[in-house]
Amino acid sequence: MDLQLTDEQRWLAESVDELVARADAGSVWRSLGEFGAFEVGGDGLGAVELALIARGLGARLAPLPYADAAAVHYALDLGGAAVVPCLAEPGRRYAPAEPATAIVDGRVSGEKDAVPYAAAAELFAVPATADGDAVLAIVSATRTSIEARPTLDETVAPAHVRLEEVEPESIEGDAETIRTIAAAAAVLVSAEAVGAAGSLHELAREYAGQRRQFGRPIAGFQALRHILADMYVQLESAWSSVLYAAASLDERDADATRASAISKAYAARATQQVAHGALQVFGGIAFTAEHPAHRHLRRIVVRGGSYGSARDHERAVARSLARAAS
């Protein structure tokens, strides 16, 4: 098993980083499209490359539904649209391919929960049941009613989406398509969170070298050195599991669904621990609104909850363990 990046993959990561650093907020999305960041399959990008891009965007806290849209484009060709998957439903167990949302007489009705960047989306990818089978309805965002919900991260702003007899733009794929999108979404938002945690770790590392107390840099205190070391291990191991899950999607590994659940469950908790560690290292300064730490923390927590929380994915792994034994 070789989880080393190739030179092309390294180059891709650097190029995207430069692109995001240069472009202004309004034009990043278009630049990503021109760069080919949505061109999936064939000679284009795989989940590993999408994860590299998502990590780069996460590192700069870019307020874009890239991980979300890329997960859909990974399974379907929708020409680079700003499409966001609607995978959770209010009050129900997280099970994207078993939706209560239904298609009756060709029209979609139901409720979706925790839809990231709902207000910025052009299209929603909506799992729905039609004649007993799960299908994916592509729905124009303007035909739904979007209700903002309280959130820690107003940039992601996960919202409630209500569909009342909406005529879909198209019907694409089946339960398998939904599972692929759900797995890719879990992996790509994890990559984004790893990016946000990585840049925060770097900020905390630098700060620890500069801030002095008791006549020396606080990085000299072993209690903090060990927090920073643990953060490093959490960060790197989370990234390893994201890469593994992405590669298993690309190789159509039989275990890809479980690998994505494992990486989401692990990365959500690990990146949150990194953020908590960073806030401890910063001390009081991190509690000023202008300091960036809280924006990383918010992004990490909210992305940790996108497309199934750590608990949801642990439950999925737990159920499959129990099933296999009985």
Binding site: S237, L243, A259
Partner: peptide
Amino acid sequence: EVLRHHASR
């Protein structure tokens, strides 16, 4: 599993 992923990388 994460140990496996990380050790492999």
